[in-house]
């Protein structure tokens, strides 16, 4: 009986959290009109969310592309199809690895930072203080961060994929001797603008939305103590990673499944 009650309590608590999360989302979205009047707030957040994530995204993109070049070459050469290396590298990057790995890195780099920042602002009463200064902290603090995350993610994913394709080129063409023309032309013949690139961008927009939402919610909903903030930060990374991978499956099934 106790077990059942505990299950019920957990269920109710999760539903309540879900409800608070959606209310927070609505509140953040209602701040969009205010944000258009203060573009500077968005720029500052684009800097901390986007620009500061660029280094890790570029380096990871380069190495993921190079690994894809190596692995792809060894598998494809068994079928005598080394020329298809370009397609393989580009398709895996644009469809899957670009959006997914970028989102995972984003959750670790920017998402955890957002949670910690908002959590600390809550713990040090800064959010409360803004409220008492008659400034809505959700519209003023959270909305710009939310928009910055939403905008940054597709751009970061595009940078990741582009750098990865170049990394694959470095290894495949430069090191392993795949024909340069074949690398690009097969890629161009097989990668479809709509099916592959658009869908990849849509994926990364969805991931940007979900990751930033989770990060901001965890920060805003955390227990305002140092322990609470550190737990919320961990939760952000775990929840974001799970959400990204599950959503990726759903989106892939919707987009590429007939």
């Amino acid at each position: 009986m106790e077990q059942l009650a505990r299950l019920g309590r957990t269920g109710i608590a999760s539903l309540q959290r879900l409800g608070r999360g959606h209310l927070l989302l609505l509140h953040m979205l209602s701040g969009l009109t205010d944000l258009t009047r203060r573009p500077r707030l968005l720029i500052a957040q684009l800097y901390s969310v986007g620009v500061l994530s660029m280094l890790i995204i570029t380096i990871s993109g380069l190495f993921v592309g190079m690994v894809l070049g190596l692995q792809g070459f060894y598998i494809l050469s068994q079928f005598g199809a080394e020329e298809a290396l370009g397609v393989m590298v580009a398709a895996s990057l644009v469809r899957e690895l670009g959006p997914v790995v970028t989102a995972l890195l984003f959750a670790g780099r920017a998402g955890s930072a957002l949670t910690a920042e908002i959590g600390l602002m809550k713990a040090t009463e800064q959010l409360s203080g803004l409220e008492m200064m008659a400034v809505d902290p959700i519209k003023r603090i959270l909305t710009p961060r939310f928009m910055a995350g939403l905008l940054s993610m597709p751009l970061l994913a595009a940078i990741f994929s582009a750098i990865g394709v170049i990394g694959g080129h470095l290894v495949g063409v430069g090191l392993l001797g795949v024909d340069e023309g074949a690398y690009w032309s097969q890629m161009q013949a097989k990668i479809d603008l709509h099916e592959d690139i658009y869908n990849g961008v849509i994926k990364s927009i969805v991931f940007g939305f979900v990751c930033t939402w989770i990060a901001l919610f965890q920060g805003h909903d955390c227990v305002p103590t140092s322990e609470g903030v550190s737990r919320a930060t961990t939760r952000t990374v775990v929840h974001s990673a799970l959400a990204i991978l599950c959503l990726d499956f759903v989106l892939t099934a919707l987009m590429f499944g007939e």
């Binding site: 751009l155 994929s161 582009a162 750098i163 394709v165 890629m187 479809d192 603008l193 592959d196 690139i197």
Partner: peptide, 10 residues
């Protein structure tokens, strides 16, 4: 990067 993906890759 988006332009590169659209023009060079696809």
């Amino acid at each position: 990067a988006l332009f590169f993906l659209a023009m060079q890759v696809s």
